[in-house]
Computed example of a mutant assay.
Amino acid sequence: MTFTAQVKVMPHKELLDPQGKAVMGGLSNLGLAAIKDVRIGKSISLQIEADTAENAKQIAEEAAKKLLANAVMEMFEVDVTPNA
Rank of each mutant, 00 (worst) to 15 (best):
L32G: 08
D37Q: 09
K66T: 08
E54D: 11
V7Q: 12
V80N: 10
A53K: 05
L15N: 11
K65T: 06
D79I: 00
K13L: 05
S28T: 12
P82W: 00
A53F: 01
V38R: 02
N29P: 11
E74S: 02
L16R: 06
E54L: 06
N70E: 05
M24H: 04
V23N: 00
I40C: 12
H12L: 03
A50G: 08
E74A: 00
I48F: 03
V7L: 07
K42M: 07
E74C: 02
K57R: 14
M1S: 03
Q19G: 03
E54N: 10
P18F: 09
A5E: 06
I44M: 09
L16V: 06
A56F: 02
A53Q: 02
M10Y: 03
D79N: 14
N70F: 03
R39C: 09
M10Q: 10
M75L: 00
G31S: 13
M75Y: 00
Q47T: 15
A53G: 08
L68P: 14
K65V: 02
A22K: 15
A60G: 13
F76C: 03
V7M: 10
E54T: 12
Q19C: 04
V23S: 05
E62H: 11
E61K: 08
V23H: 03
A56V: 11
K57E: 15
R39K: 13
Q19S: 07
K57S: 15
